[in-house]
Design a protein around this nucleic acid. Structure first.
Lengths: 142, 142
DNA sequence: GACAGGTAGTACAGTATGGAACTAATTCCA
DNA sequence: TGGAATTAGTTCCATACTGTACTACCTGTC
């Protein structure tokens, strides 16, 4: 066995946790909890609650909560879908787009502090491998 | 900037979430919640609650709960540390070692199903890069 | 149209999580 | 030695999360 997959998973998990933790204060300044940020970040690609729940692997009931908070904060609004009245199409407000982009930037800065430790081509390599690993999964963000 | 770090983080996070979700049923059969598994997996390397909390980036109060559950399930026990009577040294039982190893194997299988999609040298490459990223050792209080 | 079977989203209530306060033990220093 | 400051771990309890049940709506069949 050349590489232990479980170890790989654990290493990776610790990395992501540490990075997220490092920028959670910045997210809070933007008025975002980590979970809310995940929702905000995916809304453009998956604008319906059920889609978001599947995409983010969280319960529908949790999506309801995060969306409620994000709507209350003025980051998005719900619109009835004309073709299916059961569905709520989620639309980002200008504030929502701004907050999302700033949050992405904060996350990128936090991760960059780690990525600085590796060569640029390794970074591209990492992206290539991760994309390949998610290949059988739903398509990437827009 | 050649590669967006935030996208990299998000891709990676989705990958880990999907993999963990894929083996959570198997963990449940072993009598383990995901969080409990993380604790069980780290006990050998960080045998004190405070160390575990720092290592896993979770609150001390949560470690108390997970350790209590794991003790109740017979996977570990607490012992007073002879050199510092404030500390609880955590010791895995035989059942604990067995459960941990099976859980690791389940996680490895779930990840392997993904890793099968990429070339063996990419897997080694991934490990090399992740190890480099964690090089600036996280604030290990140990 | 009416009914059966299925899906989107929400509400409720029980469980899980974690910040702050607390207890016990240790260390430091006069 | 005594006591202030520090640290390990736990407890308390307010908040967050989520399984289940529910309402509203859709689709297909007759």
């Amino acid at each position: 066995m050349p590489v232990d997959a479980a170890q790989l998973w654990t290493l990776n998990h610790r990395l992501l946790t540490v990075v997220l933790d490092a920028c959670s204060a910045e997210l809070a300044e933007l008025g975002l909890e980590a979970k809310e940020f995940f929702v905000l970040a995916e809304v453009a690609a998956s604008p319906y609650p059920a889609e978001l729940a599947a995409r983010l692997v969280i319960p529908k009931a949790s999506v309801t909560v995060y969306v409620r908070n994000l709507v209350a904060k003025g980051f998005m609004r719900r619109e009835i879908d004309d073709t299916d009245l059961r569905r709520h199409r989620l639309v980002l407000t200008d504030d929502g787009v701004a907050a999302r982009d700033r949050a992405f930037a904060a996350l990128a800065r936090a991760f960059d502090r780690r990525l600085a430790a590796i060569a640029p081509q390794d970074r591209a390599e990492l992206q290539r491998i991760l994309l390949a690993l998610l290949e059988p999964a739903p398509e990437a963000t827009s």
